[in-house]
């Protein structure tokens, strides 16, 4: 019996939904709920994590991310401008920097600036400084490429109009091109902040004191002290969403607002 196109589409949809239900059921049946209940979803024992998960973990994650982002954004802007410079030396330096710090694992950068550089120069760095430098330097490499693309997406005529009004190049950049570029790069920039938020967990390779713990380290600490299996890590993980989801919502709001003024 032949089916119409509409009937075929309907049947296909039912089949897809059926497959989804079967897979979900198989997973649920395969899980050892008893063990999971005591070692992953053991929420009865996590009381001692509060309120320090806010006051220490969440707070430090936010501080580390913000410090790295400030360095990353200013360094990234500088590198992006260098990459677009007409002076070859600047372009080479920026390209070399970006390729290096994008290519090397962030963890190694943390180790280098957490242990290597203090040893080499005989200095003692505060944790905040280490995060700022290492995570900030990695972030500037990524943000530089994002900003460069944004700056290049601003039509050439904007620079020409600004220059023909007598603005020097830097002034045209600051007042005309960069503000427009930022609007363009807002979505990918949000992405960078979210990646930074999670990468701030890499700081665990440094020896931290309890008051310097960020979310992941705080969760790992809970694993050994609370006897609730991996549950504390699960809770810490959920707190990352507390940061990243509002960030996404905020970015979407900005985006639709700038879309409205553009209309």
């Amino acid at each position: 019996m032949a089916m119409t196109a509409r009937q075929r589409a309907k049947v296909s949809l039912y089949v897809q939904a059926g497959i989804f239900v079967v897979v979900l059921a198989a997973v649920i049946l395969a899980v050892d709920w008893k063990t999971i209940g005591t070692s992953v979803f053991n929420f009865a024992k996590i009381g001692p994590m509060f309120p320090d998960i806010f006051l220490v973990g969440l707070k430090n994650t936010l501080i580390y991310t913000a410090l790295a982002f400030v360095v990353g954004l200013s360094g990234g802007l500088l590198l992006a401008l260098m990459k677009l410079s007409s002076f070859p030396l600047y372009r080479w330096l920026a390209t070399g920097y970006i390729e290096f710090f994008r290519g090397v694992p962030a963890l190694l950068v943390f180790i280098a600036f957490g242990y290597g550089v203090p040893l080499a120069f005989g200095v003692q760095w505060d944790v905040n400084i280490v995060v700022m430098v290492s995570l900030g330097m990695v972030a500037s490499a990524y943000i530089a490429e994002t900003l460069r693309a944004g700056l290049q997406a601003v039509p050439k005529g904007q620079m020409e109009a600004a220059r023909s009004l007598g603005m020097p190049h830097w002034r045209a950049m600051v007042s005309i091109v960069i503000p427009q570029a930022f609007k363009i790069v807002l979505p990918p920039l949000t992405n960078e902040i979210i990646l930074l938020t999670k990468d701030s967990s890499l700081i665990y390779v440094l020896g931290l004191t309890a008051s310097q713990y960020e979310l992941t380290k705080f969760g790992r600490d809970g694993i050994s002290s609370l006897g609730a299996g991996l549950t504390p890590l699960l809770v810490a993980g959920a707190f990352y969403l507390v940061i990243t989801i509002p960030l996404s919502l905020l970015a979407r709001k900005f985006e639709s607002r700038s879309a409205r003024t553009k209309r």
């Binding site: 600004a162 023909s164 603005m167």
Partner: peptide, 28 residues
């Protein structure tokens, strides 16, 4: 030297008034 372009090249992030004031303020 004033220049007028085929595609206007107004600054889209600035109001009409600000388009006309920005270089007066920043340059002059």
């Amino acid at each position: 030297v004033g220049m007028v372009f085929q595609h206007f090249n107004l600054f889209p992030h600035l109001s009409v008034l600000d388009n006309c004031t920005i270089s007066q303020m920043k340059v002059l």
